[in-house]
Design a protein around this nucleic acid. Structure first.
Lengths: 194, 194
DNA sequence: ATAATAACCAACCGTTTGGTATGTTGCAAG
DNA sequence: CTTGCAACATACCAAACGGTTGGTTATTAT
């Protein structure tokens, strides 16, 4: 990786962290410059504006890590148990700062979906992709699932409950509520089977 | 109501609307002043700072309307059906702007819970109160519910799924996803019965 | 009638914001 | 040896922000 690529990647990483912690709007370019130890000219050489930097963080950092987080769980032979293990493991492995900061994608959705079309469409695409992944994985074991289920609806419900739990945790500053919700979420998911 | 009280109430109403639309941080005092047709001196006569105005909006606008929204549903003889009707009605009655803006309390939770302790504690108290309301209402029909349920856990799960659905709707800009999630939420809630 | 206070206004303050224009450095090709 | 461009740095800008100040009405109590 060339020096320029390193600089660009460093900006992306730091920006991703800052946006995760403080949200997009509250993220200050000057803080990013300080942490990267570069000048404003350097940043504007690599990114044409703050919003373009935001889009790049979304596409090059958030989306890949998001998919890498969900994919393994859904790729299991039994996606039901895969999801349950995924939620349980996430609950166990999460440290305090992650609990407080929530899911980067969900945060951006809450903050930016209704004020910036560029973010909205990217988030929407991501949500639809995740939902399709869940639907596909559940379809593979459809024979063992209750026949009355609408998988599309079930998938959105799972994601909603999960993201809602990250929101709940922010105010309590601990894993307790997250634990409770994911626990009930697992009970729900398992109840999808016949 | 005296003129001063009218002024104060007007500031609260306008601020509540602005915060709902753009979030707390992005809400500009100057916009509030314009919409109220008052000067900055007037605002700072009634509220000592922007954050105190935010707290007042939370306590005097958001909390009462929030409780007034949930209470009737939970006060029904059968809270299970009460909640289902509540969610369905909400889905039917919501206009586009409400879909896009989401739940004011959930928005504030996402935006402010991890950056301002004053907001965090107020939100936490509200969440615990709502959860207690749900637990109490479910307890009344506990005999008709599945015995293995942990009501505290169930209540937080319901709220999570609901708030998650408002988040989902923001990116799609329509009621479709909200409809799907609440539909599945109703199916889940009804499945709590024996 | 007058004093006091509540309710409000206009102007201004320092700071921070995203963004830009110009200047400088190092390396690589000709 | 020098020309040229990539990769930055420096210095600056206008706008917006929350907040403060000193002054001005309007209302009420005495």
């Amino acid at each position: 990786m060339s020096d320029a690529e390193k600089t660009r990647q460093n900006i992306l990483d730091v920006a991703a962290d800052e946006i995760h912690q403080h949200g997009y709007k509250a993220t200050s370019l000057s803080v990013i410059l300080e942490r990267c130890a570069i000048s404003k000219g350097a940043l504007y050489y690599h990114f044409s504006s703050k919003i373009e930097l935001g889009y790049a963080v979304f596409e090059e950092i958030y989306v890949p890590t998001f998919l890498n987080t969900w994919q393994p769980a859904l790729a299991q032979k039994d996606p039901i148990e895969g999801l349950c293990e995924f939620f349980t493991a996430m609950c166990n492995n999460m440290n305090c700062s992650e609990v407080v900061c929530g899911c980067p994608l969900n945060n951006l959705c809450e903050e930016m979906a209704n004020v910036d079309e560029g973010f909205r469409l990217r988030i929407l695409a991501m949500q639809e992709k995740l939902n399709q992944l869940i639907v596909d994985s559940l379809s593979k074991i459809e024979a063992s699932l209750r026949p009355e289920l609408e998988l599309d609806q079930v998938a959105y419900f799972i994601v909603s409950a999960f993201h809602g739990s990250t929101s709940l945790s922010k105010s309590s500053r601990n894993k307790e509520l997250f634990q409770k919700v994911t626990s009930e979420l697992c009970r729900y998911i398992r109840s999808l089977k016949k």
